[in-house]
């Protein structure tokens, strides 16, 4: 099956769409698809994955226009995957959902 990733960073990198072919191995999550693409095509694809059970909500993306928890939502042929909110985008589908966003330590300012 094929998926489309809307890529790009918050640092001014251009936003573009890339298409990838992924194997059909039975019911698999959007997160597994992103992991497959990162491992097999392009290691620089930003995606976030932690609990893999729909608890931490960090993997949330917009898939075919709908907000979905990527690790528990099946990937489907032709799916278009983009960050949940462009303004929160760190890179590609990674968005900053930290619970401590206001109290960040900066390495460049202090490290």
């Amino acid at each position: 099956m094929r998926i489309t990733l809307v890529r790009g960073g918050a640092d001014g990198a251009e936003v573009r769409q890339d298409e990838y072919e992924i194997p059909d191995e039975g019911l698999a999550s959007i997160s597994s698809a992103l992991q497959y693409v990162a491992r097999n095509y392009d290691g620089s694809i930003g995606y976030y994955l932690s609990c893999r059970r729909g608890m931490c909500a960090c993997c949330v993306v917009r898939a075919n226009g709908k907000i979905e928890t990527a690790c528990v939502t099946p990937v489907t042929d032709g799916m278009v995957i983009e960050p949940v909110k462009a303004t929160l985008r760190v890179k590609d589908t990674v968005v900053d959902l930290s619970m401590a966003r206001e109290n960040q330590f900066s390495f460049t300012a202090e490290g």
């Binding site: 976030y48 932690s50 931490c56 959902l97 930290s98 619970m99 401590a100």
Partner: peptide, 19 residues
């Protein structure tokens, strides 16, 4: 005190998976 985490604060680790 500086806390560094590989994931995101409040959204990583086994703690997040506890019910």
């Amino acid at each position: 005190v500086v806390l560094l985490t590989k994931g995101q604060v409040g959204r990583s680790g086994a703690t997040a998976t506890i019910t």
